[in-house]
Design a protein around this nucleic acid. Sequence first.
DNA 1: CGATAGACCTGTTTGC
DNA 2: TGCAAACAGGTCTATC
Length: 262
Amino acid sequence: MPELPEVETVVKTLMPKLLGHILTKIEARYGATVQLLAPFKPFTIIHILRRGKYIVLSGKESTVTIHLRMTGRLREKSPNPKHVRAQLVFDHLILDFEDLRKFGRIVYTNETQLESLPGIKLLGPEPWDPNLSTHLHQKAQRANSAIKTFLLNQKNIAGIGNIYADEICFHAKINPLRKANSLTQKELAILINSTKYILEKAITLRGTTFAHFIDANGKKGNNFEYLRVYGRKGKECLVCQQTLSTKKVQGRTTVYCRNCQK
DNA sequence: CGATAGACCTGTTTGC
DNA sequence: TGCAAACAGGTCTATC
């Protein structure tokens, strides 16, 4: 469910709920979901932010990092108690962490430096980082993998997942199966522009709900109807009417237009 | 170092 | 119809 725009939406809906409140306890219902890297101490939430696909709740001496992976959700009073893998107990409410597939993770540490948090330290730049194009240019030259794979690698750029990787390549008119090191400077610049455009639009529309995604208020995202390739395998290209092609890349279904994407 | 397959999970859809 | 395989928004890990 969650790529950058969805996580951004969750973070925005968490802010007014949680800022200034005390996280008193983390209740684990499924062992692997919660990891305490230090003895838990209650703390007041003073910052809430997104980094890549991670949600970061931090206090003066503690941080909770949450990754929703494929099916994670945060909401109050889940109507689906069966899939609640953990609960974040605050002084004024309880947030249920629902996660059908149990891939999601909640990590507590006594670190507060973003750069030292597990999972976050190896992330590449955010799509709006001023150093992004220099960084990606260096990385792309050495990458002998598909452009699709390159975009999904969080060390190259943080936040892109399977939906937006395909949408970005379609918007950029670039074939996702080409090798990343075949991109010209000009094409890379186009790819970066498309990345920002697609993600910004999805953020404005509060994310894409394909099957599971909801924000912290239980609301679905509105970007689904704007998807042009993801989930449209075998249908006609919305630009040239040719049937869209599909291919597995790194185990992920990739949909693209042979005619429009060179 | 970089690339790729498999593992981790459960529920739903597809295909024979 | 019925059952097994394939598939689903993501990352780790092991291995070459």
